[in-house]
Every structure is written in structure tokens, then in C-alpha cells.
Amino acid sequence: MQLDIMKGPSSWAHTARVARAVSGAGLAGIVFTETTQTPWMSLAQAASVAPELQLSTGIAVAFPRSPMVTAAIAWELAGNTGGRFRLGLGTQVRAHVERRYSAEFDHPGPRLRDYVRAVRACFDAFAGRAPLAYDGEFYRMSLLPDSWRPEQHAWPDIKIDVSAVGDWMCAMAGEVADGIHVHPLHSLPYLENRLLPAVTQGCARAGRPVSDVDLIVPVFVVGGDTAADRAPLLRRAKEQIAFYGSTRNYAFQFDDLGFTGLSARLNTLLKAGDLDGMRDAITDDIVEQFAVVGRWDDIPDALVSRYAGRAARLVSYLAEETIDTDPLAPARWGAIARAIA
């Protein structure tokens, strides 16, 4: 397994500082989110200061962009990073897609499947492997004059990953994607009993082995040699578990583990603005299911025990915050990366 960190929105200067720290410590790469800013400029900035890092989007929002636009950006990034870029795509939610981006959302699962295939058709056309002649359920493209074709490079086989949570989306990912961005709110029973069986089903439809699909797994890693040392990260992990868990589409994550009704309770607290109450509703038993907590020296074994044989890449969800505040943090994360590799 390789260890990346998750990178949120920030200035280019901050991105450069984090990229240098991550590279110098020996971590594998950075996964860039798309929330209040697009990931592309920060990703290029990281590549310019730390060219050995593996870089990816986790995830870029698909539907507001034409597949051609997304493919062209990904093609440029792959060429300029020497093939060290992989494209992570996701749907976002209806409200954001329709009311913030003013884009189409209906039938998000089939739409995303068609989007992935359309982006691949663009890659094939850019590489000169086939003319651009994609006629899908939602996307149709048939014009790419030579004068508008991006310059070819040596890394045309760009991996495309998708975010997936439910059974249908996980099966779809197994059918068409190179990898899955697993949701940060996940437990081992979810991976074993829901995600992997669905991925296996999708792979069977496509006639390929499950090993063709990489699991890219964000993890709430809470390290510290004493309880007091762990307290800040533990607080943040509880806040994030509570925030994600308040979404009713994820209620099954709690229900499957016997924490029935917790999602509805968190949603009620969220609507009341009681963020402290949300965090306090996440008990240590719940944290144990959704996070990895322990002394720094014990974290590698805990990660290997939980994810070895399942995940190709782990993504430390909270590492960026520690790099900003603790000068020893890069070395700690680097030690974990080497131990689990």
C-alpha cells in the first residue's frame, strides 16, 4: 500500500509548502479535493515543486464540465507529470450540481458511467488510436480536427477513478473504472459486505478480475503518543464522522453496525446548529469503527491489519492539518508511509 495525503483548498504558496513537505518525507502523493476551488491549478503547482509525487483528484466534479474539457485537462496533466496523474471523478449531490453549477444531474449513476466512457473515447482520440466518434446515452462527440488534437505524449493510458458508496455505483465502478475513491465514512464490514461484493459483480459483467480496480481509501488517522497528544485529531475525526453521518444516504453505515437511528439524530442536531452535540454523539465505539487511533509507532500495524489486501492507496484525511501545525508531522507520516509500503 502507498500513503497519500488529502489536500483541500488553499493558496498556491501553501500548496507548494505542503507538496515539498510531503515529498521530502517520502510519502507517495497528494489527492486534491474540489470544494471551494477547482483542483487543477493547485495540482499543477504541486507538480512543479515536487515532480516525483503521484497526484490525483479525489474527486473532481464531473457533470459541470464537458467530458472533452475534463479529458483535455487530464491529458495535459499526465503529459507534464510524466504519467504521475490519475483522474478521480464524482457526481457531487443534486443541489450543488443543479443549483450551484447549473448543470444536469438526473440519472447520476448511468450519467457518470457514460461520462467515464466519453472521457476514455477522448483519450483514444488524443492518442490517435481511434477517431472521436462517441455516441452514448448522455454524451455525444464526433468532431476533433487534427489542428485541435492535443499533442501526443508517452502516457496516454490515464487511469480514471470514481467515487462510489452504494451498491449500484460500486458495481458500476467495477465495470468501467480503474479505481474507487472510497468514502471517508466507511467501516471494515462495509468494505467486506457491501463494497467489495458489488465491485466483484461489476467486474464480472466486464469480464475482468477484481484486482484491476484499485481501492483508494481516505482514513481518519488519529496518532499521538498520549491521549492528550491525540485529542486534537480525535476531535476533528469525530467532527467529520458526525458531519458525514448526518447525511441520511449514509445512515446504513451506522445501522449496519448497530448504531441505529444515529444518522437521524445527527441530522436533527445539524439543523439545530448544535455542532458540539454532533461531535459528542460520536462515542469511542463509533470512532473505533471509522478511524484508526493509536500511538504513532502503532499506527502502521493498525493500517496494515485493516487495509492490507484491500486497498492500493491510503489517503490520510487529517494529515494536512498536522503538517501546518507540527514540524515533526512530515517525518511521522513519512515513517508510516515507509512502514506500510
Rank of each mutant, 00 (worst) to 15 (best):
C122I: 00
P300I: 02
R100I: 13
Y139P: 07
T325I: 11
G79N: 11
V213A: 01
V97L: 03
V69C: 08
F259H: 12
I299N: 12
D178A: 08
T70H: 02
A237R: 09
S246N: 03
R100L: 13
Q253I: 00
S246F: 01
V22Y: 05
G334I: 02
A329D: 00
M6W: 11
R236T: 13
G58H: 08
A173F: 05
P9I: 10
R120M: 05
A13G: 08
S48E: 14
M278E: 00
S10G: 15
S66Y: 03
P51T: 06
R20Q: 15
A173N: 07
L303C: 08
G224A: 12
S56N: 06
P9E: 15
D146A: 13
V176L: 06
A13M: 10
F85I: 08
S102A: 14
Y250A: 06
E52A: 15
L269I: 08
V287E: 07
T247V: 11
P209G: 09
A13P: 01
S102R: 12
T33M: 12
A335M: 04
L275V: 15
A19P: 07
T81A: 10
L257F: 02
H96D: 08
D4V: 00
D276R: 12
D298T: 08
L275Q: 15
R295C: 06
A227P: 01
D276T: 13
D167S: 15
V213S: 01
P110E: 03
R111G: 06
R236S: 14
G207P: 04
P184R: 06
A71S: 03
L27G: 02
G179N: 01
A74T: 11
H153G: 06
P67K: 09
E76V: 02
Q37N: 12
W148Y: 13
R295G: 11
E320A: 14
V49S: 04
S23H: 12
R295K: 13
G136W: 00
W168D: 15
R129C: 10
I180H: 06
P327D: 05
I59Q: 00
L270V: 00
P64L: 10
L215E: 05
P67R: 09
R140A: 15
A206C: 11
R99P: 02
R295V: 01
V210L: 14
G277Q: 09
I216K: 05
R295F: 02
A272Q: 14
N249Q: 13
G90T: 01
G207V: 08
Q240C: 06
W296V: 09
R236L: 13
A231L: 12
A311M: 03
A121E: 01
R248N: 13
W168A: 15
R99H: 13
R208P: 04
V165T: 12
A204C: 01
P330S: 07
M169W: 03
W75M: 10
R208M: 02
Y101S: 05
M169I: 12
D146G: 15
A121D: 01
D157K: 07
P209I: 09
A251P: 02
K271D: 12
C170G: 11
S10R: 13
R149S: 09
E76G: 14
V93R: 08
L233R: 09
T260V: 15
Y139V: 05
G24A: 13
D178Y: 06
